[in-house]
Each structure stands twice: as structure tokens, then as C-alpha cells.
Design a protein around this nucleic acid. Structure first.
Lengths: 143, 143
DNA sequence: CTCCTCGGTCACGTTGAGGTAACCGCCCTC
DNA sequence: GAGGGCGGTTACCTCAACGTGACCGAGGAG
């Protein structure tokens, strides 16, 4: 391969001001929204505002600490807000900004639930193939 | 508030076989795809198959170790595959399953880049409001 | 032959995400 | 006024994610 071909082959657009640039603030935003807790909380809150304990019950397996931390982070980034109701209980709701997140995150949930079977099958194929390679004495990965 | 009202208020659908159940395998799938590295890799690979070093350059700031780990995980879950080209170089490409991920993940990138300004503003508002509350001697958060 | 790149692997160390359990003030009910 | 639920906070710990730097075998290029 000539140097010219290498150069052309490697030409990947620079994308300076995108998530692909580690110093771009949008990278942080991506990290915040590309997160299972964020996804579940936004999806739950889109149906209706919820109290803390309802969120805690709705998001199975989340600890109070992580729920609090995630809610504070979402509030700080303007996606969620909370208020005290007259009855003294907290109530969390999506902001306008948070509502714009619902559609993309719901798509993630839909994907995860629709394709989970295919993922599980692929995983099994991969693992048995790996076992066979090991039994055959082949190094697990050709470098 | 009466007990009946409390009960009704807390009625959140059980959602047994969804990502909201921590033991459902779809929860794992969600965690894998709701991930910044996954998102960036899938978006890059959707444009064209890429070599390892092209991915390493394309995903700014990722280390070789994390890139390898993420690619192996994506391969195991059937979203990516790799092969040796005749020239001896590796080439990674999306599988059919991986291609179905492109649209939802591209939506995440688009969101992150479109709304990053609003997120930054919200963050600043939150931080200055918090500072004021502290200066006023108010405990940072009303429990 | 020697040097280089590519595509990794390996052996660390650091950071951050996340869990656990105890505790707390407020309000409510009994 | 004792107990209980709500909405947290705190201290502490664990483990997975991530980074770093060195190394390595295969395959060119010179």
C-alpha cells in the first residue's frame, strides 16, 4: 500500500465541534443522556410527574443514593425540576427540555426490549465459538 | 391524605418484563446501547466499515484498551463484526442488527449537539442559584 | 537486516459509579 | 407521645470503568 492510499484510507472527517471531540461540551451531554438511569427516569416522568418514592419503585433496583444523584444531575442540566406539593411531598416533573428527550430515549428502550432475544442469541454464538477456539488450542483472538 | 389516596397515588404499573425490571435481560441491553462509546462507534461504522486505527482516531479521546473492550462487547452482542482484509489489516463493520441501532443512537448525538447550549445555560442557572442559597445561609437542599 | 506501523495484549494505577446501612427532621396517624 | 412513611443525607466500601505505558508478533518499506 502506498503512502497516498494510506492517507486517503485514513481520511476521517475531523468533526471538531461534535461529540467526537472529547473537549466539546456536547460530549458531556451525550454521556448524561446515554445512560440507563437517565433513560428510565425520563420515560417514567413523561407519563406523569412522580414522587420520589414512586420513582424509586418504578426504576427497579435503583438505590436511593443513585436516584438522588441522578435526579440532581438532571435538574442541574435543566431536564427535570422538582417542587413541594401542598401536602409536603416532593414531586418531580420533566421540563420542556426534558420532554424533548423522551422520544429518543423511548426509542432506546424499545430497541432494548425488541432485540434482546437476538442479542442473547448472538452472545451465545460468540461464547460457544470462543470455547471451541480455546479447545482447539487456537489463541482466543488473532492479533 | 387517606390510605386509599396514597395507594392510588403510588400505583405505578409493575412492568415485569421490561428494562424497568433489574433482572430482565433487556436491562443489560439497554445498559450496553445507552453508552457514549457505543453510540459513537455505531455512528462512525454506519458510514463505512473502518479499521481499528480509524476508529481510534474517529472517537476522540478513547484509549486503545477501552476501544478494544467496547468492540469486543459489541461483537459479542452481535452488533459489530470484524475481519482481516487481504492486506492483513482488521476491518470492523456493523451487522444487520447493529445497523438497526444507528437511527436511535444518531438521535442521541443530534440531541446532545442541538441542545448543548440550553444544557449549559441551565447548569449555570442552577449553580448560581445554589451559590445564592448558600450565601443566604439556606441549607443547599430542603429535605 | 532494520526500522516502522498496525492491531492489539498485559500489568499496572486511578477514578468514579454504585451499593449498604444507619440516621434524620417533618408530618401523619394512632 | 410513640410509631411509621416520606424524602432525603452521611459515611463507608466495592467494583467496574478507564487511562497509561510498555511490550509484542506480523507484515511491509528501505
Amino acid at each position: 500500500m502506498t503512502q497516498d492510499q494510506v492517507t486517503q484510507d485514513r481520511a476521517v472527517a475531523p468533526r471538531e465541534w461534535t461529540v467526537f471531540s472529547p473537549s466539546c461540551p456536547s460530549r458531556e451531554s451525550l454521556a448524561r443522556i446515554a445512560n440507563k438511569w437517565t433513560a428510565m427516569i425520563v420515560i417514567l416522568l413523561h407519563e406523569s410527574p412522580l414522587r420520589f418514592s414512586q420513582l424509586h419503585d418504578g426504576v427497579g433496583g435503583i438505590s436511593k443514593k443513585v436516584l438522588v444523584d441522578t435526579l440532581r444531575a438532571l435538574e442541574r442540566d435543566g431536564m427535570v425540576e422538582h417542587a413541594r406539593e401542598p401536602d409536603g411531598h416532593a414531586r418531580y416533573r420533566l421540563t420542556a427540555l426534558g420532554r424533548t428527550l423522551h422520544e429518543p430515549l423511548l426509542a432506546l428502550q424499545a430497541w432494548a426490549e425488541s432485540y434482546v432475544e437476538q442479542v442473547l442469541e448472538a452472545r451465545q454464538r460468540y461464547d460457544t465459538a470462543l470455547d471451541e477456539r480455546i479447545l482447539a488450542g487456537v489463541p482466543p483472538y488473532e492479533p
